[in-house]
Write a protein that binds this DNA or RNA. Sequence first.
DNA 1: GCAAGGTC
Length: 853
Amino acid sequence: MKLVIAEKNIAAQKIAQLLSQVGAPKTDKVYNTQVYRFTVDGEEWVSMGLAGHILAPDFPDEILFDQKAGWHSVDAEGEVLLADVPDGLPRPPYDTKRRPFLANGINIKGWKVESLPYLTWAPIVKNPAEKEIIRVLKNLAKKADSVVIATDFDREGELIGSDALSQVRQVAPEVPVARARYSALIKGEVTEAFAHLVELDQDLADAGESRQYIDLIWGAVLTRYLTLAKFGGFGNVRSAGRVQTPTLALVVERERERMAFVPEDYWQIRGKAEKDGQEFKIAHATTRFTDKATAELVFSHVDGSNRGWVSAVAKRSRKQAPPVPFNTTSLQAAAAAEGIAPARTMRIAESLYMSGLISYPRVDNTVYPRSLDLAGIVSGLAKNSPALAPVCKKVLAGPMKPTRGKTETTDHPPIHPTGQGNPESLDGGQKKLYNLIARRFLATLMGPATIENTKLSIDVEGEPFVASGDVLVQPGFREAYPYGLKRDEQLPALAEGDEVAVSDIALEAKQTEPPARYSQGRLVQEMEKRGLGTKSTRASIIERLYQVRYLKNDPIEPSQLGMAIVDALSQYAPRVTTPEMTAELDRDMTSVAEGKESRDHVVDHSRALLAGMLDELIEHKDDLGEAISDAVTADARVGACPKCGKDLVMKTSAKTRGSFIGCMGWPDCDVTYPVPSGVKVSPLEGEAAVCPECGAPRIKCQPFRNRAWEQCVNPRCPTNFEPDIKVGECPVCAEAGRTGELIAHKSERSGKRFIRCTNYELCEVSYPLPARGKLEATGEVCQDCGAPIVVVETARGPWRICVNMDCPGKEKKPARGRGGARKAGTGKKAGAKKTSAAKKAGSTKKASTKKTS
DNA sequence: GCAAGGTC
């Protein structure tokens, strides 16, 4: 039996299909992993896919630490740690106390500069990372007469193959092994590769391993250093790395440019014009007056004028070319513009790919290969996506000449829908992304859009004004692909000499804007441009920067912490803050791949550079720790304490682990406030930052995907106070022969609103209320369940609701808002039952929202 | 509790 090892399942399957000589390959399972059995020249072959790297580099456990003390641990005796350090280098000085220690085996504290030349570096081992895959691999290797490594034809592919070989060798030391190098999963390429097998290129694999080692060494040493310089408790890792730190630095640099930006004043004169009831905007032909006096003089000519004459009409049509096929980066950018972050795009794309709806999502290629059955895909789409059927028919009737992008590789086709499977059952995010991909695909097969621009010149009191309008006259590809399309700006039909009514001419003072912050889509593109990360890693690296709270919001802003980290590393370890480290690594890896340098030499050189920087880092550990802790406080700040003026910050209770807002002056000052639940809290600036009623800070509350509001942080403040309101009689108490009143309360602690019966010690009736909006009792009772009806004032007007979430009446009529119809609970009895009813109502609401949205 | 690179 011949064993073929591919990098991933899809490649194993494709290879089997392309090489099988007797019918289609048979899908089989070894343990729980798919493998493909087929026959070539009478020999039995089996192909299996790995899952990328199956081994992960790390420091050996016994060198690292005893598990209890983690990174802080150099064992009291230190014997285990240091006895295993090779090369007989002198021991670093340490005492019997526990010292923070870095992954390379050195202490932060207690180190002298002159000891650095004697650094002992911890060795690196490679641990199994994909245990199931390795088990299958070994199982098959034992039975194999020969092995072919058929991983991707690139540096990481060679390393993945080399790691696989090391596992094969453990169970089959003598089995013959060869390497197949194909650069496209097409018949000619693959058969050719298997006809001319070569040897595994160990130099190329070593180059990849140098990359692994250097990333681990720098990442672990700097991450541990930053984390321990001012330890913020578990869950507060301050990470650094060859790709993430320069990426963070890009964002910080942009923010600094914005802060340094000096806005310039300019003035605009704009107004409205109207003809036959159709209104449009006009602006002075001088789009920006940089001189105020000139602007005022011009304005004085036209101020209050109500007529103008069309002095010229110019029409020009321009064509907008259809877009090029999607690769990973352009998909991420387009999806980001539709509100899907790159990391989420990749998770969704992976699921669509696994369901057979789209092609392989990790590609650089932007040119469809000739072998791709474009018409077949369009027909499939027409069949499976009714909404796209009309445009699919047009595409099929047209010439179908696909566009092509600049990057052409042959490994995988650009990202496209397969036309197979049923996209109708997809949920929100999946549907959105699938539509984007399907529509993009159709657009790449269609003609250009034609946009007609009309420019009007209008004379107002001798001053030249202009108006401009764009109209899509021929949709072309826009019929399939509306993304990023501007709305038509239609101008009325006018001819030279026509009179128009002019109104509202105003002189507007403006300021130039600083350079814009990066969107997530733009940042991915910028990383690609600067050679940072790969198509498979950029999205997750950005996500990581959010996770460690170096970044916030979208468009992206660095936190104070993020800026402090970049500042510190720029000063003491500048190499890790620029894309140049990656560029140098690429050059080093080329040398290793060419056999001019050894892996160990390149890694040792990198270690020496890091050691040189550790000198300074260790010396400035306390300054840096302080800078980090100041930054963390600044990020947590919500405003000034009304009592002592110190900072009020978000804190976590040591006892309950819950968060609260507390004064930095504690224990001298005891001011605390609860954190409004379910929202992201941020400070306000300027006048809005202080409550005029009580002096506490005012804050911005941002719920997830809902409109934000501002409020005073103090729940006892009159601006937050709501008197209890009687909303009706308790139906349960009435049935039990008692008198109970239902009262709407607002909790001072949590700010939550709810209705409770005055007999709450006996009666468990309780209903949740919407968090916001003025509440009014109506005195009416629900026809369906007997609970009171209240009116809640919302941004979109008054909302009449039965307070009982389990009311059977809610099944009949759809509720307002995005959630659609709320599913009623069992609701057997009028007036509902227990507190649990309210909880249940909450959960059924969530479930039904998911179903119907 | 570290990185970045594959892929699930």
